[in-house]
Amino acid sequence: MNNLLEIQGLSKTYDRVQALTNVNLSIGPGHITGLLGPNGSGKTTLIKIICGLLQPTSGAVYVDGMPIGTESKKVISYLPDQTYLNDNMTVEATITMFRDFYADFDMNRAYNMLTNLGINPKFKLKTLSKGTKEKVQLILVMSRRAKLYILDEPIAGVDPAARDYILRTIIGNYDPSASILISTHLIADVERILDEAIFLQYGNVRLYQPIDTIRSETGKSVDELFREVYRC
């Protein structure tokens, strides 16, 4: 079993709401996979289970062959959809904290990206705009040399010019044996850097295919296909 992420028969129920139903997925190393789906389709629930923040109701998840636990968390670098950093800390102090926390954190990478994005490390997080704060969080996550990066809505609050830089940063910084799972609604922006896409619907995997297979079979971009599949 060489898959970086292996999900078997995964289900999750909150009280009476069925969030995920019998999800099966295998993601190999070296992929950038889009996790796509409308609001409430189970994207964040799936991500939180992989990261060990939620317990599945049934089924199994393996990351790099390991069940979810302390060891699996070491190889996952996770960008949550909400901020969790201390607003009173400076960017610099936050980076130092990450270095202390994660053995695989690369300070040089972090400072390079800060410089390229013109972010002053002496500033406190609370003085930064929403978009800049998001950039800092993404820098922190991409500066780890992890095996699986999980990015939940990484560029939602970032302006289009910086989005481009960030997407390139993602391509330029991940190790070819690592994989990235990106949940996003900004499909048109992200599509080019993906090589495969997962469509979730009502807690099920509706489609899991390479981007260029989708494009050649449907004649549509993934963004167009998404709008068609999930038309309200």
Binding site: G30, I171, R192, I193, D195
Partner: peptide, 8 residues
């Protein structure tokens, strides 16, 4: 990187 596309 230059093209902004997936290496694969």
């Amino acid at each position: 990187f230059d093209a902004g596309v997936n290496p694969n």
